[in-house]
Design a protein around this nucleic acid. Structure first.
Lengths: 189, 189
DNA sequence: GGGTTTATTTGCCAAATGGCAAAAGTATTT
DNA sequence: AAATACTTTTGCCATTTGGCAAATAAACCC
């Protein structure tokens, strides 16, 4: 629980009452490898925080091609902000890549009444701003260079992640096939 | 001027006083093809609005490889939000692709005193939120499929833009060489 | 542990893309 | 209109990546 509080404190201030309030209302959630936190078409009703494990955000197109959009590990929020904020159906899947231990804050904690207690608007604004700037700066770098460059780039940005997620998922994130990624790995070593 | 006001009104409400205030303080700026609105290393001091023309946002890596990050046309804001909001040096170039006619709002209009007059915080939050969600939804689609798919996708999303920007710029946006893009065009027709 | 499933590597060849340079086409200037 | 500069197309060939299927390795289940 402390981890989640510290995470939130990076963005907004909380007094002891507010911390107690969150501690009382957060629930633990265990996801087994393969379990879904959110499915396309469903509206995001809650916000998760990863205590342990890795989750993947991905998209399926009409031909069932699987594109990985993001990987999230410990001390990160898990939520489709677009769906959660606008309460519209999500266009992505969020799935546990490994067994996961999450803390979950129910959507009701974010409603008008509770926003008086916790400055959620400010919190999400900061999260979104930070995330927006990251994308601005690094986002399009994904298309730069050949597959090997993109892979090395990924290793540099997320050094611990590559050996926690299946090759196929990483390949779809990098925009190549898993065979190609396998060969790239081989060439590098 | 009316165009800019209407654009802002999409996001926040303004009364006649506020509209007059903006009208008085906005300045016209003409950029010739090739002129820069912002250069890497400079801090964004103003916000532009395109009345006419196309601008390109791009990045140069250490080997001077040019990667197009975005193209903007009429009725869009021109600003490196990351640099402008945090008043830190920009990591991108913003350059006129065609002759451009802009309205420019100086940074001073956004300072504390003037924020009392105009709800800039809310305005930028909405812009950023909208932009963030667009990236979430469509951003990574860029890496989906082969170069032809990405080109067709671009044509669908920005039907008028393709014939207003040089082939080389579009190619760098799509992550391919201009020769390849030229061949792709040929094959399609 | 043995069997089953899933993930990864590899071989083979086809297809896509890059690199380079020259040619053809357009736009711009004088 | 001619000269110049810039953009786009094309040819040639090397390299990268994809597609498919089989082999190997690793993880999972009973």
């Amino acid at each position: 629980m402390e981890k989640l509080i510290n995470y939130i404190l990076q963005y907004v201030q909380l007094d002891q009452n507010q911390i107690d309030f969150l501690t009382t209302n957060a629930k633990e959630l265990y996801l087994k490898k393969g379990d879904f936190f959110l499915k396309e078409g469903k509206t995001a009703k809650e916000v998760g925080f990863i205590l342990n494990g890795v989750v993947r955000v991905f998209h399926l197109d009409k031909d069932a091609n699987d594109t990985s959009l993001a990987f999230l590990e410990e001390n990160r929020l898990v939520v489709d902000l677009a769906s959660f904020n606008t309460q519209t159906p999500s266009s992505v899947y969020i799935q546990a890549v490994t067994n996961c231990e999450l803390l979950v804050l129910n959507g009701e904690l974010f409603d008008q009444t509770n926003s008086l207690k916790i400055p959620w608007d400010l919190f999400f604004n900061k999260i979104m701003t930070e995330s927006f700037f990251n994308k601005e700066r690094k986002g399009r770098i994904a298309l730069t260079g050949d597959a090997t460059t993109r892979y090395l780039n990924f290793l540099k940005n997320y050094p611990n992640l590559a050996n926690r997620i299946p090759l196929s998922n990483l390949a779809s994130y990098l925009g190549i096939t898993q065979s190609s990624l396998s060969r790239i790995r081989k060439n590098i070593s």
